[in-house]
């Protein structure tokens, strides 16, 4: 058996990055005490509109389209739609005091519907599935470092062979880790998620923190959708492309115990589990069983965390609970 371990690791990293975006955004949201079950919908919206935005830029600029600008447009459009979707969520849950779980699920129904609707409409209008031309596609899924660096034995493949989103994703997750655990604002945010009444009494603007965390978090999650569409899915839309990507992101939030730094390793691991059936085909373990391993592992983590009750491993204490100032 020849198992190319380097190739496997680098493929796992690429496969894990969309989930890393989805998870990091959801961690930011959950740190404010809001469980947004709309990630699936947000990623659909991000993926669909990010692709449509890039496609429109490609059609209007033609051959003169700048690859880096296309990448920026894709991410920006995805972020804006994600932020818009979670703005609806936060308006309903924070201001109008609607139940979080139900609102999140409504957002999933709305978001997956809107994403599919928009791309289906584009397909009808353009007379075929929309996709990104080759000369732009390399900007999304091609390696960004020069050939010489990729040719360094072992390290080249392991560190320098990736597309732009891998480095952006890592930077984003690290920045979020530093923000949450090292800055004053990050600690305030954690206080809001742990005990909003205390945070409120301490003079923290709870409503503002909740809004900002859910909206920015939702935008980041949605970027995961476009990253997936532009890399793994090969810039082509199909209605089931993003199925389950949001839910696995929610799973990873639990698996990495609400830490963006741990989410980096977690996303690589989930990416690896997702690919394992391709790289290690076994007569005894069917593909479908490989694919439920991430969920089983997550359940085990969830159980262990609740039994061990170690304080630093717990979800934000006020996660999913409503906070009404006058009822404290």
């Amino acid at each position: 058996m020849n198992f190319n371990i380097l190739g496997f690791i680098s493929a796992a990293v690429v496969a894990g990055i969309p989930i890393l975006f989805g998870t990091s955004g959801e961690i930011l949201t959950e740190k404010s005490g809001h469980l947004n079950l709309g990630v699936e919908g947000l990623m659909y919206m991000g993926g669909a509109f990010g692709l449509i935005g890039t496609y429109m830029y490609q059609q209007s600029a033609g051959e003169s389209a700048m690859p880096w600008l296309a990448v920026v447009i894709a991410l920006l459009v995805a972020f804006l739609f994600g932020a818009m979707g979670s703005l609806i969520y936060s308006f309903l849950t924070v201001s109008l005091r609607v139940n979080q779980n139900v609102t999140g699920l409504a957002l999933t129904i709305f978001g997956t519907g809107l994403g599919k609707f928009a791309c289906e409409l584009m397909r009808v209008k353009e007379g075929g599935q929309i996709f990104i031309q080759n000369y732009l596609r390399t900007a999304f899924s091609g390696p960004i470092f020069p050939k010489a660096m990729q040719d360094i034995p072992v390290l080249g493949k392991l560190l320098f062979s990736y597309n732009v989103f891998v480095y952006l994703g890592l930077a984003m997750a690290l920045a979020m880790h530093l923000f949450i655990s090292k800055t004053r604002k990050g600690l305030y945010l954690q206080a809001v998620g742990e005990n909003p009444a205390t945070a409120d009494a301490a003079g923290i603007n709870v409503v503002r923190y909740k809004y900002l965390a859910t909206v920015i978090g939702g935008g980041i999650s949605a970027m995961g959708g476009v990253v997936y569409v532009m890399t793994t899915a090969g810039t082509v839309w199909s209605p089931h492309t993003l199925d389950g990507k949001g839910w696995i992101s929610v799973a990873l939030v639990i698996f990495c115990l609400w830490s963006p730094a741990k989410a980096i390793w977690g996303s690589f691991l989930f990416g690896a589990l997702n690919l394992l059936f391709l790289w290690l085909p076994s007569r005894y373990i069917p593909t479908q069983i490989y694919q439920i391993v991430p969920y089983i592992v997550t359940v085990l983590v969830l159980i262990l965390v609740s039994i061990r009750q170690r304080r630093e491993d717990q979800p934000p204490a006020a996660l999913g609970l409503p906070y009404f100032r006058e009822e404290r």
């Binding site: 799973a251 639990i254 593909t287 479908q288 069983i289 694919q291 439920i292 359940v299 159980i303 999913g320």
Partner: peptide, 26 residues
């Protein structure tokens, strides 16, 4: 143990679907 049921039941959905997918293909 007061394990979070929202997240637990959510994960079980995909495990159930995966099991049936396996039966379907096997």
């Amino acid at each position: 143990w007061n394990t979070n049921e929202t997240l637990f039941t959510l994960m079980l959905n995909y495990i159930a679907i995966g099991i049936v997918a396996w039966l379907q293909g096997g």
